[in-house]
Design a binder for these strands. Structure first.
Lengths: 164, 164
DNA sequence: ATTACGAATGGAATTAATTGTCAAGCAGGA
DNA sequence: TCCTGCTTGACAATTAATTCCATTCGTAAT
């Protein structure tokens, strides 16, 4: 799966924070490490639950706030997810997502052949800066267990079907 | 700019409902017409507010329920939108989206050259059924009024009703 | 037309998700 | 050390989404 956040990654991210006059507090550091350390696009609450194991005093408010801050400075991104809660990721390089229509899992997809798409030039005057493709389908797990149910019990970890 | 929902469109959608043993009640009909008649990917609440103008007694619950039903039978789709509440659309043919990073407007993009992307064959065994590209950038309106603020006052509506 | 029954609805209440407020804590410079 | 501003945590307030349930509607059989 996803490569662990290298020390280099972290240093770069920390540097970005610093360049925005943000001190790297334990809370910020914890949230960032947690988010960078997983590739499953967790919700704010997922992050909160995970971080609080190591930092029991952290508050939910702070996690929401830190996530928003990380997004603002460009270290993290809020990803598209048709489920109800917002999800986050720290991979800022171009990549795409496989979204399972059944269990809502969201899996990163790297495919260099998709990274050089000719950008459309909409007559509207819209200035395109980046793009990301969402591939919808059925994940291996769901294929395995048959195609009956929609959505896993708790959208806790993956996400679901929507669209880009 | 989006073509008005033709009678044909509506008939096809109604047919789908019927095939799922769903009677076309005024509420369902109103929600469907409203949703099909706009191209701005409204939230459930946007739809509620709009429909209630013509059908004052309709309840929010019903709108949420109808939208979910329409999605279930395949007449509508819940679209991905980072931030803000879930949004819906009835255009089921392949198309893509321009998403404004500032005001969060979401605009449909048709571009045949993007419709035949070679589907990746992820080693994971994920079975891809469809895809959609999200182009992020700045919309004409936001370019015009300068690039200062993030997010318009209310993410509720984005470009709505009558786009040319 | 009347009855019966399941589908569908409305509205309140509830839960989940997110944001806002504000006082207290901590860090660094004057 | 004192002042000042950045951060945080507790909690209130919103906003979004869902659940509950009694009532109503539609349709078919009577």
């Amino acid at each position: 799966m996803r490569a662990r956040p290298t020390e280099t990654d972290f240093q770069r991210q920390a540097e970005i924070c610093r360049s925005h006059a943000l001190s790297l507090t334990v809370q910020r550091r914890s949230v960032l490490e947690e988010l960078a350390g997983r590739s499953d696009h967790p919700t704010a609450d997922d992050v909160f639950e995970a971080v609080r194991r190591r930092l029991p005093e952290i508050s939910r408010t702070t996690v929401y706030r830190v996530l928003e801050t990380l997004v603002r400075v460009g270290v993290a991104r809020r990803v598209c997810h048709p489920g109800s809660a917002a999800r986050y990721e720290t991979r800022m390089r171009r990549h795409h997502h496989l979204v399972c229509l059944q269990c809502e899992a969201m899996i990163d997809l790297d495919d260099p052949s998709l990274d050089g798409l000719p950008l459309p030039n909409p007559s509207s005057g819209f200035r395109i800066e980046d793009y990301s493709i969402q591939f919808r389908g059925i994940c291996p797990e769901c294929i395995k267990r048959g195609s009956v149910r929609r959505k896993s019990p708790k959208p806790g970890k993956a996400a679901a079907g929507g669209e880009a």
